[in-house]
Simulated scan of single mutants.
Amino acid sequence: MNQNISHIDYKQVMEYALEPLIIHSRLKIIYINRAAEIFFRAPKEDIIGASPLDIFKETSKAAIDNRIQSAYEQPADVIEETIYRMDGTTVDVELYCHPVLMGNTKAIQTYVRDITARKANEKKQKQMSKELNELSSTLVPLFEGIAILPLLGSIDEERARQLLEKVPVNVQKQNVKCLIIDFSAIYKLDLIVTEYIFKINNVLSLLGVRSIVTGLRPELALVAIQLGTNFNSTPTVSTVKDALHLLGVNYTES
C-alpha cells in the first residue's frame, strides 16, 4: 500500500482539483491549477510570476502580507476577502493557505473558494430579516386610541430586543392608549425571547398605555408562568374580537 501511495502524482491531483489552487513563494506565484485559470479568467502564463498580493485591494495587502509570512510556519485560519480577477472584476472568496515544500523551496499553497452566492444569500436574508423586524414592530390602528401589534413568524432574541425598543416609541407616535398584543401567529418562544416580549407590558404600563394579550397558546402561557410573569394588570383573552368587547367596542365581523 505504501508503495502505491508513493507513486501518486500529486501535481496531477492538484491540477484536476475542482477548486482553484495557487502555490507561491517569496511573493511570487509559481503554480496554479486549471480551476484557478478558469476562476481568474486568464491563462497560466499571465498569472505565474505575478505577486499573490496583486489580487487584493490596497487596504488588505498589508494584512495579507503578514498572513503569508506566518503561513510559512503553520497553516493560516480560513478568512473571507474580496479579490480581483485578471479582468478587473471582483469576487467574494474564502481563503485557506498552508506551507508546502516544492523540492527544497518553502512555499505556500492557497485554496480559493468562491462564496459569491453565499454572500448574496446572506445579504438577502439580512434584508428580509430587517423588513420583517420593521413589519413586526408596526402597530395596526383599529379604532381611535386602539391598535394591535400582530406578532408574526419566528422570534429570536435580536428581533425581540428590537420590539422592546420600537413598540413603545411607535405607541407614543400613534397616540395609542390601548395596545392589543396578539400572539395567535406565534407557535414557539424560548424563555429569553418571552421575557423580552412581556417586558413590553411593563414599559407600556409606565407610559400609561393599557395592554391586552390575545391568542396566547397554552404552551406559551406555560413559559410565561415559568418566568413568573404577572398577568394581574394585563388581561388575556382568546381573540382580538374578545379584546375589543372587553374594551366596550361594538365590533362585528363583515
Rank of each mutant, 00 (worst) to 15 (best):
N2G: 12
Q3V: 10
S6G: 14
M14K: 01
E19D: 11
L21D: 00
I22W: 08
I23D: 03
I23H: 01
H24M: 00
S25D: 01
R26C: 02
K28C: 03
I32R: 15
A36V: 03
F39K: 03
R41P: 08
A42F: 05
D46G: 12
I48L: 03
S51T: 11
P52F: 09
D54G: 00
F56N: 01
K57H: 08
K57S: 07
T59E: 15
T59K: 15
S60N: 13
D65Q: 04
Q69V: 07
S70W: 13
D77R: 12
E80C: 02
E80M: 05
E81I: 09
T82N: 09
R85L: 02
M86T: 03
Y96K: 10
L101V: 01
G103I: 03
N104C: 14
A107L: 00
Q109F: 05
R113K: 07
K119F: 04
A120H: 15
N121A: 05
E122I: 04
K124H: 08
K124V: 11
Q125R: 15
S129G: 00
K130W: 12
E134D: 15
E134Y: 05
L135Q: 06
D156T: 05
E157P: 01
L163K: 00
V167W: 08
P168K: 14
K173N: 01
K177D: 02
F183I: 13
A185R: 10
A185G: 10
A185D: 08
V193H: 12
T194N: 14
E195F: 10
F198C: 11
K199V: 01
G208C: 11
R210F: 02
V213Y: 07
A221L: 06
A224K: 01
G228F: 13
S233C: 10
T234Y: 14
L244M: 06
N250F: 15
